[in-house]
Protein backbone atom coordinates (compact mmCIF):
# COMPACT_ATOMS: atom_id res chain seq x y z
CA UNK A 1 0.00 0.00 0.00
CA UNK A 2 2.74 2.43 0.94
CA UNK A 3 5.89 2.90 -1.09
CA UNK A 4 8.08 1.97 1.86
CA UNK A 5 6.41 -1.43 1.94
CA UNK A 6 7.74 -2.61 -1.41
CA UNK A 7 10.54 -4.60 0.14
CA UNK A 8 9.25 -5.96 3.47
CA UNK A 9 12.46 -7.78 4.35
CA UNK A 10 14.39 -4.52 4.64
CA UNK A 11 12.10 -2.80 7.13
CA UNK A 12 11.72 -3.38 10.81
CA UNK A 13 9.75 -2.51 13.89
CA UNK A 14 6.76 -0.26 13.80
CA UNK A 15 6.87 0.41 10.07
CA UNK A 16 7.03 -3.32 9.43
CA UNK A 17 3.88 -3.72 11.50
CA UNK A 18 2.13 -0.95 9.59
CA UNK A 19 3.09 -2.53 6.30
CA UNK A 20 2.08 -5.95 7.57
CA UNK A 21 -1.34 -4.72 8.65
CA UNK A 22 -2.03 -3.07 5.29
CA UNK A 23 -1.42 -6.01 2.99
CA UNK A 24 -4.16 -7.01 0.54
CA UNK A 25 -5.00 -10.05 2.63
CA UNK A 26 -5.45 -7.90 5.67
CA UNK A 27 -7.87 -5.74 3.77
CA UNK A 28 -9.82 -8.89 2.98
CA UNK A 29 -9.77 -9.52 6.73
CA UNK A 30 -11.09 -6.03 7.46
CA UNK A 31 -13.70 -6.48 4.75
CA UNK A 32 -14.91 -9.64 6.49
CA UNK A 33 -15.81 -7.52 9.51
CA UNK A 34 -18.05 -5.63 7.12
CA UNK A 35 -19.55 -8.95 6.02
CA UNK A 36 -20.43 -9.68 9.62
CA UNK A 37 -22.09 -6.29 10.00
CA UNK A 38 -23.89 -6.83 6.69
CA UNK A 39 -25.17 -10.16 7.89
CA UNK A 40 -26.45 -8.51 11.07
CA UNK A 41 -28.16 -5.75 9.13
CA UNK A 42 -29.93 -8.17 6.81
CA UNK A 43 -30.60 -11.01 9.22
CA UNK A 44 -32.25 -8.89 11.91
CA UNK A 45 -35.19 -7.56 9.86
CA UNK A 46 -35.55 -10.83 7.95
CA UNK A 47 -35.83 -12.91 11.09
CA UNK A 48 -38.20 -10.37 12.55
CA UNK A 49 -40.36 -10.81 9.46
CA UNK A 50 -40.22 -14.61 9.71
CA UNK A 51 -41.03 -14.41 13.38
CA UNK A 52 -43.92 -12.08 12.72
CA UNK A 53 -45.36 -14.38 10.07
CA UNK A 54 -45.01 -17.34 12.43
CA UNK A 55 -46.72 -15.45 15.25
CA UNK A 56 -49.57 -14.44 13.01
CA UNK A 57 -49.76 -18.08 11.90
CA UNK A 58 -50.02 -19.32 15.47
CA UNK A 59 -53.06 -17.09 15.99
CA UNK A 60 -54.61 -18.09 12.68
CA UNK A 61 -57.97 -19.84 12.65
CA UNK A 62 -56.90 -22.18 9.84
CA UNK A 63 -55.65 -25.36 11.50
CA UNK A 64 -52.89 -26.44 9.06
CA UNK A 65 -51.32 -22.98 9.16
CA UNK A 66 -51.48 -22.99 12.94
CA UNK A 67 -49.83 -26.40 13.17
CA UNK A 68 -47.13 -25.40 10.70
CA UNK A 69 -46.39 -22.16 12.55
CA UNK A 70 -46.34 -23.87 15.95
CA UNK A 71 -44.12 -26.62 14.62
CA UNK A 72 -41.71 -24.04 13.25
CA UNK A 73 -41.52 -22.10 16.49
CA UNK A 74 -41.15 -25.17 18.68
CA UNK A 75 -38.74 -26.95 16.41
CA UNK A 76 -35.75 -24.94 17.54
CA UNK A 77 -36.37 -25.45 21.22
CA UNK A 78 -35.00 -28.92 21.54
CA UNK A 79 -32.33 -28.92 18.89
CA UNK A 80 -28.92 -27.25 19.04
CA UNK A 81 -28.74 -24.44 16.57
CA UNK A 82 -25.42 -25.60 15.25
CA UNK A 83 -27.23 -28.58 13.82
CA UNK A 84 -29.58 -26.19 12.08
CA UNK A 85 -26.79 -24.07 10.74
CA UNK A 86 -25.10 -27.10 9.27
CA UNK A 87 -28.28 -28.61 7.99
CA UNK A 88 -30.28 -25.72 6.54
CA UNK A 89 -27.74 -24.40 4.01
CA UNK A 90 -26.96 -27.89 2.76
CA UNK A 91 -30.61 -28.81 2.47
CA UNK A 92 -31.46 -25.51 0.78
CA UNK A 93 -28.59 -25.90 -1.64
CA UNK A 94 -29.80 -29.37 -2.62
CA UNK A 95 -33.38 -28.15 -2.85
CA UNK A 96 -32.48 -25.28 -5.19
CA UNK A 97 -30.35 -27.49 -7.37
CA UNK A 98 -33.07 -30.13 -7.41
CA UNK A 99 -35.68 -27.63 -8.58
CA UNK A 100 -33.35 -26.19 -11.21
CA UNK A 101 -32.52 -29.68 -12.38
CA UNK A 102 -36.20 -30.50 -12.80
CA UNK A 103 -36.78 -27.33 -14.80
CA UNK A 104 -33.60 -27.03 -16.86
CA UNK A 105 -32.68 -30.66 -17.44
CA UNK A 106 -36.14 -32.18 -17.47
CA UNK A 107 -35.22 -34.54 -20.32
CA UNK A 108 -32.65 -36.28 -18.10
CA UNK A 109 -34.27 -39.33 -16.56
CA UNK A 110 -31.43 -40.59 -14.38
CA UNK A 111 -32.13 -40.30 -10.69
CA UNK A 112 -30.49 -37.41 -8.85
CA UNK A 113 -29.66 -39.37 -5.74
CA UNK A 114 -27.48 -42.21 -6.92
CA UNK A 115 -26.67 -44.22 -3.87
CA UNK A 116 -24.75 -41.76 -1.78
CA UNK A 117 -24.18 -39.18 -4.49
CA UNK A 118 -26.21 -36.14 -5.27
CA UNK A 119 -25.81 -35.42 -8.96
CA UNK A 120 -27.56 -32.71 -10.91
CA UNK A 121 -26.80 -31.73 -14.47
CA UNK A 122 -24.11 -29.13 -15.06
CA UNK A 123 -26.50 -26.39 -16.03
CA UNK A 124 -28.42 -26.79 -12.78
CA UNK A 125 -25.41 -26.34 -10.54
CA UNK A 126 -25.65 -23.41 -8.21
CA UNK A 127 -23.66 -21.32 -8.71
CA UNK A 128 -22.46 -22.40 -12.13
CA UNK A 129 -19.01 -23.91 -12.08
CA UNK A 130 -17.89 -21.22 -14.52
CA UNK A 131 -18.98 -18.41 -12.22
CA UNK A 132 -16.51 -16.10 -10.57
CA UNK A 133 -15.28 -16.67 -7.05
CA UNK A 134 -17.29 -13.78 -5.70
CA UNK A 135 -20.51 -15.37 -7.00
CA UNK A 136 -19.71 -18.50 -5.01
CA UNK A 137 -19.01 -16.33 -1.99
CA UNK A 138 -22.24 -14.42 -2.44
CA UNK A 139 -24.22 -17.64 -2.82
CA UNK A 140 -22.72 -19.08 0.37
CA UNK A 141 -23.49 -15.80 2.13
CA UNK A 142 -27.11 -15.84 0.99
CA UNK A 143 -27.57 -19.45 2.09
CA UNK A 144 -26.10 -18.53 5.46
CA UNK A 145 -28.37 -15.53 5.66
CA UNK A 146 -31.42 -17.71 5.05
CA UNK A 147 -30.24 -20.16 7.72
CA UNK A 148 -29.80 -17.30 10.20
CA UNK A 149 -33.18 -15.83 9.33
CA UNK A 150 -34.90 -19.21 9.72
CA UNK A 151 -33.41 -20.00 13.11
CA UNK A 152 -33.71 -16.51 14.52
CA UNK A 153 -37.15 -16.17 12.98
CA UNK A 154 -38.30 -19.03 15.15
CA UNK A 155 -36.82 -17.33 18.22
CA UNK A 156 -38.35 -14.01 17.28
CA UNK A 157 -41.68 -15.76 16.77
CA UNK A 158 -41.44 -17.00 20.34
CA UNK A 159 -40.72 -13.53 21.67
CA UNK A 160 -43.44 -11.86 19.60
CA UNK A 161 -46.14 -14.35 20.49
CA UNK A 162 -45.25 -13.87 24.15
CA UNK A 163 -45.45 -10.11 23.67
CA UNK A 164 -48.82 -10.39 21.96
CA UNK A 165 -50.30 -12.32 24.81
CA UNK A 166 -48.83 -9.77 27.22
CA UNK A 167 -50.94 -6.99 25.73
CA UNK A 168 -53.81 -6.53 28.21
CA UNK A 169 -56.90 -8.45 27.18
CA UNK A 170 -59.05 -5.41 27.90
CA UNK A 171 -57.44 -3.64 24.94
CA UNK A 172 -58.49 -6.21 22.36
CA UNK A 173 -61.89 -6.67 24.00
CA UNK A 174 -62.47 -2.94 23.76
CA UNK A 175 -61.60 -3.13 20.10
CA UNK A 176 -64.12 -5.92 19.61
CA UNK A 177 -66.72 -3.92 21.51
CA UNK A 178 -66.24 -1.06 19.09
CA UNK A 179 -67.03 -3.42 16.27
CA UNK A 180 -63.49 -3.95 14.95
CA UNK A 181 -63.08 -7.10 12.94
CA UNK A 182 -60.51 -9.69 14.02
CA UNK A 183 -58.11 -8.42 11.40
CA UNK A 184 -58.56 -4.84 12.50
CA UNK A 185 -57.97 -5.59 16.18
CA UNK A 186 -54.84 -7.48 15.22
CA UNK A 187 -53.35 -4.71 13.09
CA UNK A 188 -54.60 -1.65 14.92
CA UNK A 189 -54.55 -2.70 18.56
CA UNK A 190 -52.39 -5.74 19.14
CA UNK A 191 -49.46 -5.02 16.83
CA UNK A 192 -48.81 -1.39 17.83
CA UNK A 193 -48.91 -2.23 21.51
CA UNK A 194 -46.89 -5.41 21.60
CA UNK A 195 -43.52 -3.83 20.85
CA UNK A 196 -42.86 -2.52 24.32
CA UNK A 197 -43.33 -6.03 25.68
CA UNK A 198 -41.24 -7.50 22.91
CA UNK A 199 -38.25 -5.18 23.25
CA UNK A 200 -36.50 -6.97 26.15
CA UNK A 201 -36.77 -10.29 24.37
CA UNK A 202 -35.79 -8.82 21.03
CA UNK A 203 -32.78 -7.01 22.45
CA UNK A 204 -31.67 -10.27 24.01
CA UNK A 205 -32.10 -11.86 20.61
CA UNK A 206 -30.01 -9.14 18.98
CA UNK A 207 -27.19 -9.84 21.42
CA UNK A 208 -27.40 -13.50 20.59
CA UNK A 209 -27.48 -12.76 16.89
CA UNK A 210 -24.25 -10.82 17.29
CA UNK A 211 -22.69 -13.71 19.10
CA UNK A 212 -23.91 -16.19 16.50
CA UNK A 213 -22.17 -14.51 13.59
CA UNK A 214 -18.91 -16.48 13.91
CA UNK A 215 -20.95 -19.50 12.83
CA UNK A 216 -20.63 -18.10 9.32
CA UNK A 217 -17.31 -19.86 9.40
CA UNK A 218 -19.05 -23.22 9.62
CA UNK A 219 -21.08 -22.33 6.56
CA UNK A 220 -18.08 -21.90 4.35
CA UNK A 221 -18.13 -18.13 4.14
CA UNK A 222 -14.71 -16.50 4.35
CA UNK A 223 -15.55 -14.63 7.51
CA UNK A 224 -13.48 -13.14 10.30
CA UNK A 225 -12.76 -16.51 11.87
CA UNK A 226 -11.51 -17.86 8.55
CA UNK A 227 -9.20 -14.90 8.02
CA UNK A 228 -7.98 -14.91 11.60
CA UNK A 229 -6.89 -18.51 11.18
CA UNK A 230 -5.49 -17.88 7.73
CA UNK A 231 -3.49 -14.79 8.61
CA UNK A 232 -2.53 -15.82 12.10
CA UNK A 233 -1.02 -19.17 11.20
CA UNK A 234 2.76 -19.24 11.26
CA UNK A 235 4.36 -18.01 8.06
CA UNK A 236 7.73 -19.27 6.93
CA UNK A 237 10.32 -17.11 5.27
CA UNK A 238 8.75 -17.96 1.91
CA UNK A 239 6.17 -15.32 2.72
CA UNK A 240 6.77 -11.62 2.46
CA UNK A 241 6.01 -11.15 6.13
CA UNK A 242 7.27 -14.18 8.03
CA UNK A 243 6.06 -14.54 11.60
CA UNK A 244 5.41 -17.31 14.12
CA UNK A 245 1.95 -18.54 15.09
CA UNK A 246 0.01 -15.36 15.86
CA UNK A 247 -3.48 -16.81 15.83
CA UNK A 248 -3.96 -16.11 19.49
CA UNK A 249 -3.56 -12.35 18.88
CA UNK A 250 -6.00 -12.43 16.00
CA UNK A 251 -8.56 -14.24 18.10
CA UNK A 252 -7.94 -11.82 20.93
CA UNK A 253 -8.78 -9.08 18.42
CA UNK A 254 -12.01 -10.83 17.49
CA UNK A 255 -12.85 -11.23 21.15
CA UNK A 256 -12.42 -7.49 21.67
CA UNK A 257 -14.50 -6.76 18.57
CA UNK A 258 -17.39 -8.83 19.89
CA UNK A 259 -17.11 -7.44 23.41
CA UNK A 260 -17.26 -3.94 21.97
CA UNK A 261 -20.27 -4.82 19.84
CA UNK A 262 -22.24 -6.30 22.73
CA UNK A 263 -21.24 -3.49 25.06
CA UNK A 264 -22.34 -0.83 22.58
CA UNK A 265 -25.57 -2.64 21.76
CA UNK A 266 -26.32 -2.97 25.45
CA UNK A 267 -26.00 0.78 25.89
CA UNK A 268 -28.19 1.58 22.90
CA UNK A 269 -30.86 -0.98 23.75
CA UNK A 270 -31.08 0.19 27.35
CA UNK A 271 -31.73 3.68 26.12
CA UNK A 272 -34.33 2.45 23.64
CA UNK A 273 -36.08 0.50 26.35
CA UNK A 274 -36.37 3.48 28.63
CA UNK A 275 -37.59 5.61 25.72
CA UNK A 276 -40.29 3.11 24.84
CA UNK A 277 -41.32 2.74 28.46
CA UNK A 278 -42.32 6.40 28.63
CA UNK A 279 -46.01 6.71 29.23
CA UNK A 280 -46.58 2.96 29.33
CA UNK A 281 -48.69 1.30 31.98
CA UNK A 282 -45.76 -0.84 33.10
CA UNK A 283 -43.61 -0.64 36.19
CA UNK A 284 -40.72 0.84 34.24
CA UNK A 285 -43.01 3.43 32.77
CA UNK A 286 -44.29 4.41 36.19
CA UNK A 287 -40.81 4.63 37.63
CA UNK A 288 -39.85 7.00 34.85
CA UNK A 289 -42.61 9.29 36.00
CA UNK A 290 -41.36 9.21 39.55
CA UNK A 291 -43.96 6.78 40.79
CA UNK A 292 -42.93 5.02 43.97
CA UNK A 293 -44.58 1.90 45.24
Amino acid sequence: MFNTCIDPSSIEGFIWLICYLTTAKHFAFYFSFLVVLLLLIFAAPLSLLFGFIATAGVRSSIIPIRILAKGYIHMVRGIPDVVFFLFVPLALDQLFEFIRHKIICFEQSEPIWRGTDFVVCKAAKLPLSTADLWVHQLYAFILALIAFALVFGAFAGNVLSGAMSAVPKAQTETGMAFGFTKKQTFWRILVPQMWVYAIPGLSNLWMILIKATPLLFLLGVEDIVYWARELGGSKTSLYAYPHPDWRVYYFAGLLVFYLLMTWLSGKVLNRLQSKLSHGQATMAGRELQGYQG
Partner: peptide, 16 residues
Amino acid sequence: GSPLFIQFFFVYELFV
Protein backbone atom coordinates in the same frame (compact mmCIF):
# COMPACT_ATOMS: atom_id res chain seq x y z
CA GLY B 1 -20.33 -10.60 25.96
CA SER B 2 -18.38 -12.67 23.47
CA PRO B 3 -19.38 -15.65 21.38
CA LEU B 4 -18.64 -19.07 22.82
CA PHE B 5 -17.30 -19.98 19.41
CA ILE B 6 -14.58 -17.34 19.58
CA GLN B 7 -13.85 -18.25 23.19
CA PHE B 8 -13.12 -21.81 22.11
CA PHE B 9 -10.77 -20.64 19.37
CA PHE B 10 -9.01 -18.11 21.53
CA VAL B 11 -8.52 -20.35 24.52
CA TYR B 12 -7.29 -23.19 22.34
CA GLU B 13 -4.67 -20.98 20.74
CA LEU B 14 -3.71 -19.68 24.16
CA PHE B 15 -3.24 -23.19 25.48
CA VAL B 16 -1.22 -24.18 22.44
